[in-house]
Design a protein around this nucleic acid. Structure first.
Length: 101
DNA sequence: GCCATGACATCCA
DNA sequence: GTGGATGCCATGG
């Protein structure tokens, strides 16, 4: 799989996250089936501007230091419950299975 | 090919 | 919950 195709796959995965839900970098990597969490992060750094990058967070529920403030703000706008600067993964974690295909 | 880096994850104290 | 160590995997020098 070319790097460009990988980028497309990642962006597509991010776009398929419904509003009010979030996914971890690991989830995206697993969904795409290639590379790992760090590669997803690398893609987001370069091409994340075109998608809902704020719906991608760490497994801990804490957003990346670089974008944390904006991200929490945007997530709250999407209807995501934020507690103590941390996302409640229990409730908003994206499940590819529950998608309305 | 070796080494350093990074919007990460997991394990363990 | 916190902090350090280790693993992972692609990219760039």
């Amino acid at each position: 799989m070319d790097r460009e195709e990988y980028v497309e796959a990642v962006l597509q995965a991010v776009e398929s996250i419904p509003p009010g839900s979030v996914a971890t970098y690991g989830d995206i990597a697993e969904y795409v089936g290639q590379g790992g969490p760090r590669q997803v992060g690398a893609v987001m750094r370069e091409y994340g501007g075109g998608v809902a990058w704020w719906r991608v967070i760490r497994a801990s529920g804490v957003p990346a230091d670089e974008v944390g403030d904006e991200q929490l703000h945007l997530l709250r706008a999407d209807g995501v419950r934020i507690t103590n600067g941390r996302v409640n993964l229990r409730q908003v974690r994206w499940d590819p299975e529950i998608q309305e295909h």
